[in-house]
Computed example of a mutant assay.
Amino acid sequence: MKTQRIHIIQTPAIIWGAPSEKVYLYIHGQGGYKEEAEAFAGIACRHSCQVLGIDLPGHGERKTEAGSFVPWNVVPELLSVMNYIRLHWPHVSLCANSIGAWFSLLGLESRWLEECLMVSPVPDMERLILNMMAQADVSEERLKREQVIRTSFGQTLSWEYLTYTRTHPVTRWEAPTYILYGGADNLIERSAVDRFTRQFNCSLTVLEHGGHWFHTEEQLDFLYHWMETCLQNG
């Protein structure tokens, strides 16, 4: 596949595929990077689409940007990226993973998107944070008092982050959306995915024994087949 490395203001990006009027913006999850979009690009390019993958703050080429992977930094950046995309492609779609899907729900105007694929999305960040607080035995009173608490399971709890999720609920999403969810996901509750699917009339596919991260050969085969089907239908 043809590739081109660019910067969109401060955001490193890669474009895969021959010139086309159609593009998918690929948003990775926590710990991800722009190069992981290559597998999806291998599918999308067969459907005459280009794919643009980016490094979110604190990831990929931007690992030195400590503490920057927060919505009040990511959301304005996604808006800038989308403004660039809309200047260069008339037909824009989205493929987003995990927390990258939540950032997309907050930072992208869904009316600009022709199709959206979400893999293991975080549809309700407040619920996820409250679940992590319960797991760490941290009350809201303590979190408000201490502001930041590092947990034994590697996540950092932040009062500012929790407050942000409550003041920025996802109340509107218009893009035709396909969701892939692992039935054994121990991070995102099935009820939250079902509720989001009903609220915004999404198409939901469940791999019952799949986890939050699709990584085994069987899971990846299922993921790529699902992606191929979504693009064929779209």
Score class of each variant (00 low, 15 high):
Ala37Phe: 00
Met227Cys: 14
Gln30Phe: 14
Gly183Tyr: 04
Ser68Gly: 09
Thr205Phe: 08
Glu140Gly: 00
Ser152Gly: 13
Leu117Glu: 03
Thr205Gly: 00
Leu223His: 08
Val81Asn: 03
Val206Arg: 02
Thr163Pro: 13
Gln147Phe: 05
His209Phe: 05
Thr197Phe: 15
Trp226Lys: 15
Leu220Ser: 13
Ile6Tyr: 13
Gly234Thr: 11
Arg195Ser: 13
Leu79Asp: 09
Trp102Thr: 01
His168Gln: 11
Val119Arg: 11
Leu162Glu: 03
Leu52Pro: 04
Thr64Lys: 12
Asn186Arg: 05
Ser191Gly: 12
Ala39Thr: 02
His28Glu: 00
Glu160Gly: 02
Glu61Gln: 06
Met82Gly: 00
Val193Gln: 12
Thr216Arg: 14
His47Asn: 06
Ala39Val: 04
Trp72Met: 06
Trp16His: 02
Ala44Ser: 12
Ala175Glu: 09
Arg172Trp: 03
Tyr33Met: 04
Leu204Met: 07
Leu180Glu: 02
Gly211Ile: 08
Trp159Ser: 14
Phe200Gln: 11
Ala134Leu: 11
Ser203Thr: 07
Glu65Cys: 09
Leu94Ala: 06
Ile43His: 01
Asn201Cys: 07
Glu217Thr: 07
Gly31Leu: 02
Lys63Cys: 12
Val193Ser: 04
Ile15Pro: 01
Val138Glu: 04
Leu117Gly: 10
Ser152Phe: 14
Asp55Met: 07
Phe69Arg: 03
Leu79Tyr: 13
Gly42His: 01
Ile149Val: 11
Tyr161Arg: 15
Leu223Asn: 03
Leu128Met: 13
Ser158Cys: 08
Asn201His: 14
Glu65Ile: 15
Val148Ala: 09
Thr64Ala: 12
Ser203Ile: 02
Trp159Tyr: 09
Ala136Ser: 09
Ser93Asn: 13
Leu117His: 11
Gly210Val: 12
Asp221Gly: 07
Lys34Leu: 05
Phe196Val: 03
Ala39Leu: 05
Ile15Lys: 01
Glu189Gly: 06
Glu115Trp: 10
Trp213Gln: 08
Gly100Tyr: 01
Arg145Ser: 14
His168Tyr: 10
Gly42Arg: 05
Val148Arg: 09
Ile149Tyr: 10
Thr229Phe: 02
Leu56Gln: 01
Gly182Lys: 10
Ala41Pro: 12
Tyr33Asp: 00
Thr197Glu: 08
Glu146Tyr: 05
Asn131Asp: 11
Leu157Asn: 06
Ala96Tyr: 02
Leu128Ser: 06
Met227Leu: 06
His91Cys: 03
Tyr224Leu: 10
Glu109Asp: 15
Tyr33Arg: 15
Asn186Asp: 13
Phe40Pro: 01
Val148Trp: 10
His215Asp: 02
Ser20Val: 09
Gln219Arg: 15
Ile85Gln: 06
Ala136Lys: 04
Ala37Tyr: 00
Gln155His: 10
Asp137Tyr: 12
Gly100Leu: 04
Val206Pro: 00
Gln30Ala: 10
Glu141Trp: 08
Met1Pro: 10
Gln232Cys: 08
Ser139Asn: 15
Arg190Gly: 00
Gln30Val: 08
Lys34Val: 02
Ile99Tyr: 00
Asp221Thr: 07
Thr11Arg: 00
Asn97Val: 05
Ile6Trp: 08
Leu94Pro: 04
Cys116Thr: 14
Ser110Met: 05
Gly17Arg: 01
His88Val: 13
Gly29Pro: 07
Pro123Lys: 13
Thr177His: 13
Met1Asp: 00
Trp213Ala: 07
Asn97Thr: 08
Gly42Tyr: 00
Ile149Ala: 14
Leu78Val: 09
Met133Arg: 03
